[in-house]
Structure formats: C-alpha cells, structure tokens
C-alpha cells in the first residue's frame, strides 16, 4: 500500500537500498521493507529509525539490514537467517524466538532480549535489562549464543533450556555495578551461562549451580569474544584474562519426581 506513496523515502547507496524511516508508523515501514525485499534488495539501510517495532520479524533469508537509530520491540522476532546491525539501542525482545541469523547491537538493549531463541546469535555492546535469554533453547546443531558486553538485570536465563549466554561486564552501571542481577538462571534445565566476574552464590536461582570451566569452555569463549571484538573492538586476550563464572542446570529433568497417581504409588 505504501510503496508508491513512499518512493521518496527509498534511495540507493552503493549496494544498499536506503529507507528513511523518519516519522513512519511501524506497519507502513515494515510494508515498505517487504516491498523493497520483494523487488530484489539484499542489503538494506534503515535511517532515522525511532522505536518502530517488529523490524525483520519472521524474515527468512540471508538479508543484511543496517539500522541507524533505536530499533523498537521485537526486532528480528521469529527471524530465520538475516543479519541485522543496529547503530543505536534496541528495545524489548530483540531476537525473540529467533531461529537463525544475527543481531549486532552497538548500543544497549532493554528487557527480554533473546527470549526463547532457538538459533543464531545476538551481540550487544552495552547493557541489557531484565529477563534476558529467558527460555532460550537449542536443537541439534542450532545452539543460540547471546553475548553482552555490559551487564544484565534480574532473571537472566530463567527457564533456560539450551544455548549459551555470555556476560562480559566490560562496562558497569554506576547505580548497580554488579555483572548480573538476582534470580540468575532460575529454573534452568539446559544450556550454560558464562559471566566474566565472580558471582555471589546468593544470586543463583532455583535449579542452577556453578561449575568449573573446562578447556572447551575457554576455547568457546575465545571464539565468541573474538567475534564480539570484530564488531565492537577490544583486546581478546585482555578480555579473556579474567575470572569467568559458569552457571549450569542442576538437572535436565527438574520436575521428574513432582507427580504421582494411585496406580504408580503401588496401591
């Protein structure tokens, strides 16, 4: 609907198709993105983005999307393959239930980043909010990875069923200098969380425990940190040269002994 009306917003810049999102409501912007993609664009640059929601939701394919500004809620939700680079902050739910692809955020993220992610990677240079990585899962060779340069709030990795979360804590908040909030990994039953700091046991939620890092863990961390530094800069060795804490589930079957019935009780 918007395609002809909004032609003035679309321009070419090398191999990029540029869309000026200034003042647009999200449904129109997303229709315009759809139109541009249907016309063959593989690389998109969205400028003047200011909180528009649902960008690249459910998008399948190896598109490359640059976002200049603040991406709104559920950026790349259900996405299946695209690479999204945000020069700015992202709001709630970036990477929500994402199946494959990459989201690289040069600013901060708010709550529920990477909620229920099944595959792909999310890199955030700065801090993230509450309930990040809740119910992340994995399936076969799909192991989602979430790397946060700053700190994370409460309920990080709650109900986590798979995947990997790395919190580097390279920047700290003045008001809450700790690397992570409370209720860390409550109900975790799969996957692992790595925090680049000592973490007080009081922060652990029900069903979570600490575990020593193995050589494999360190090799994995190095790979992910190398990728992190390739986007945001930083010295890999310097970042690696710190105490990491690893959080894993107590059990993959936390509810195994919760139920009974008269027949199974042996009556």
């Amino acid at each position: 609907m918007a395609a002809t009306l909004e032609k003035a917003r679309v321009s070419k810049e090398g191999e990029f198709v540029v869309i000026d999102a200034k003042g647009m409501h999200y449904p129109e912007l997303n229709v315009l993105i759809e139109d541009v993609i249907n016309q063959g664009a593989k690389k998109l640059k969205l400028i003047n983005v200011n909180g528009q929601r649902f960008i690249a939701d459910g998008l399948r394919g190896d598109y490359y999307i640059e976002i200049h500004g603040v991406a709104g809620d559920d950026l790349g939700a259900f996405a299946n393959g695209p690479t999204i680079v945000v020069y700015g902050n992202v709001q709630d739910g970036a990477g929500n239930t994402m199946n494959a692809g990459k989201i690289i955020v040069h600013g901060d993220g708010t709550d529920i980043i990477g909620h229920s992610m099944r595959g792909g990677k999310v890199f955030v240079r700065g801090h993230v909010g509450y309930r990040v990585g809740i119910h992340m899962k994995e399936y076969k060779d799909q192991v989602p990875v979430l790397v946060i340069g700053g700190t994370a709030g409460d309920f990080l990795g709650e109900y986590m069923a798979g995947g990997r979360i790395i919190i580097l804590g390279l920047q700290r908040l003045e008001t809450y200098p700790e690397i992570v909030g409370d209720w860390l990994a409550t109900g975790i039953h799969g996957g692992a969380i790595y925090l680049r700091d000592e973490v007080d046991e009081d922060k652990l939620g029900y069903g979570a425990k600490f575990e020593e890092l193995t050589e494999e863990d360190l090799a994995f961390l190095r790979r992910e940190i190398e990728e992190f530094c390739s986007y945001f800069g930083g010295d890999v060795d310097e970042i690696m040269n710190a105490k990491f804490t690893k959080v894993v589930p107590l059990s993959h079957r936390p509810f195994a002994a919760m139920y009974s019935d008269s027949k199974e009780a042996g009556h």
Binding site: E138, Y139, K140, A161, G162, G187, H189, G190, P254, F255
Partner: peptide, 8 residues
C-alpha cells in the same frame, strides 16, 4: 528440542 529433555 533435544531428545529426553523435559519440555517445560
């Protein structure tokens, strides 16, 4: 989801 894991 992985085989044998509780689906919560």
């Amino acid at each position: 989801i992985p085989e044998g894991s509780d689906a919560i």
